[in-house]
């Protein structure tokens, strides 16, 4: 069995229909457990006080904002190289979820930054690259909407996705490239010494799992919607020609 079999819309619909309810339920469970655990049952941080509870929303959403763009990059490359329509539609389906995640990261970051840094916003490398990533998401959605021919839209948005990937990578590594700005280093690291304390780490992992599963459920649902919309417009076009 090859992964490319699922480029066939019929096979994709069958498989995604089976995975979708599981991903949806598991994401709901992880989000409820993780957020309740983090909000109600973790202590305040000795420096940041209760604002540390924002970590359970800010870190998973920021992580998803960057990785959703990376998923769009992979599916866009598959479209450019192999011309699989499901792949292009999956990238299109992921973009609005990316907008929501980037917006959550920006809003929670601003709300967290105000009491900690004394300002809602600073033109810090990570914050600025994240804002540009948000604008790329909006531009990507607008470009899909602006072009009538689906294949041309997929081609041009794929190129935009390649360009925007620079900012997705910058958003992730900006704090490492430039040793300046207000934003702290990564909260999660393979180096245990650099990680947040275990009492915050475990509920954070559950929340991250919830956000990842929510993305899987939503991107499957939205890709199925795009496939159905494409089929409906093809049938309508045939009806008009008959």
């Amino acid at each position: 069995m090859s992964l490319w079999e699922y480029a066939n819309p019929v096979k994709f619909m069958a498989l995604s229909g089976r995975i979708l309810p599981w991903a949806a339920w598991l994401s709901g469970i992880c989000l409820v457990v993780g957020l309740i655990w983090g909000f109600f049952f973790t202590p305040d941080d000795f420096r940041q006080g209760s604002t540390v509870k924002i970590i359970y929303l800010h870190v998973p959403s920021a992580l998803m904002a960057i990785n959703i763009w990376m998923m769009m990059l992979v599916t866009s490359l598959v479209w450019i190289i192999r011309r699989h329509h499901v792949s292009a539609l999956a990238a299109k389906a992921a973009a609005p979820i990316g907008v929501a995640m980037t917006l959550i990261a920006l809003i929670t970051g601003a709300i967290w930054g105000q009491p900690m840094w004394g300002t809602w916003w600073a033109w810090d490398p990570r914050l600025t690259s994240f804002l540009i990533l948000f604008l790329f998401y909006l531009g990507y959605i607008a470009l899909w909407a602006a072009i009538e021919d689906n294949d041309t839209a997929a081609d041009l948005t794929s190129i935009l996705c390649l360009v925007g990937s620079v900012f997705a990578v910058l958003s992730r590594y900006a704090v490492n490239f430039w040793n300046q700005g207000l934003h702290q280093g990564a909260s999660l690291s393979l180096d245990k010494e650099k990680n947040v304390a275990d009492v915050f780490y475990f509920p954070l992992l559950v929340c991250i799992a919830g956000f990842v599963l929510l993305f899987i459920a939503l991107v499957l649902l939205r890709t199925r919607t795009e496939i159905r919309a494409r089929r409906a417009s093809a049938l309508l076009a045939r009806e008009r020609m008959a």
Partner: peptide, 22 residues
């Protein structure tokens, strides 16, 4: 939540609204 109650509750409210919206 002490003096940061508004910030924490505001962050949760905004995020939950956006998640429900999408």
């Amino acid at each position: 939540l002490g003096k940061y109650a508004d910030a924490v509750l505001g962050a949760y409210a905004a995020s939950i609204v956006l998640l429900i919206a999408i």
